[in-house]
Design a protein around this nucleic acid. Structure first.
Lengths: 165, 165
DNA sequence: CACGTTTATATCGTACACAATTGAATCGTG
DNA sequence: CACGATTCAATTGTGTACGATATAAACGTG
């Protein structure tokens, strides 16, 4: 059995609670979004489109915003189109791009889900003080500081979670 | 356009960075686990089996540990079995159960991934002080305190993320 | 000791995720 | 202006997730 490898203990991992918590939250959205016929990733896509300063948005812009690639987005967007929430059409000025436009029905959907974020947040029962703290830590994980960026000085080159463009 | 619904702003959501960060971390594991032919959920399953005080473990126990259901685990475990990392057999004492046993090859795999957690943690570039804090917050999300458990007193009944058994 | 209930997995159907490849449109440079 | 490089989206293939249903084994009670 060699050594004990305490570092492999599931309870010492940071990745596992992160992974499990993300799934738990998506699951918690289930019933609320089911009521309007959306899945959680579809809901995120609608949030991104509703909040975009540049409507219409392209598939690439949406993917950058949600950090999802076209293999995920193309079928998801087709389902949202079939549901009547958005339209997809090639950009006449650049036939490579596909423009995503929220339909009237898609805008109406916004009223129906306006209560959802608050409801979810309440169900998480986080300390109000913990909310910005959790957001800060998650943002850090999503955008790790560059090696030379600031405080800690880990000289030895290592890959970051999100490589610089 | 009705009201502006600031609560629907993607950047105000807590769920989105949680969801995106979890995917980013799984993606970061990709190359490291690829080297030994595991996916991230398969790696978690092996961590759970390696660390189980009660070998052999049943599918149900593993599912409880990882918070995954049989629809996910059964095919995943078959792949691990095909890869030679574990064996699956019906419990002779209760034919409903399936016992999961790590093979010699499965134990050997442990040596090969022992460096992985440390490498990942370094790539996240978290402040050492932030690590227990992030763990605490994620554990809170995974196990929200019961309404009567402690401090805040939100009298009105509301669903928790994880309902009590 | 039958027989309805509960329990443990498996199966099915739908919907992500993402790496890798494809194919068409555009761009940049000579 | 030609033509190779780049960009953008779609497609393909594999592997999760999870609700719902199915099935078989074990259990409990009359």
């Amino acid at each position: 059995m060699a050594l004990r490898y305490p570092e492999l203990d599931l309870d010492r991992q940071l990745c596992f609670p992160l992974y499990a918590a993300a799934r738990a939250v998506v699951r918690a959205y289930g019933p609320l979004l089911d009521a309007v016929g959306l899945t959680y990733p579809q809901y995120l896509a609608m949030l991104a489109l509703w909040g975009s300063p540049t409507e219409p948005m392209t598939v690439g812009e949406l993917g950058e915003r949600l950090r999802l690639d076209t293999g995920t987005l193309t079928p998801l967007l087709k389902r949202l189109e079939n549901a009547g929430h958005l339209s997809r059409r090639r950009d006449p000025d650049d036939e490579r791009r596909v423009l995503l436009q929220v339909t009237d029905q898609g805008w109406a959907l916004r009223d129906e889900v306006a209560h959802v974020p608050g409801e979810l947040l309440r169900s998480m029962r986080l300390n109000p003080d913990d909310i910005p703290e959790l957001r800060r830590l998650l943002d850090h994980v999503l955008n790790p500081p560059e090696p030379g960026d600031e405080p800690s000085a880990p000289s030895h080159e290592a890959e970051t979670l999100v490589p610089p463009r």
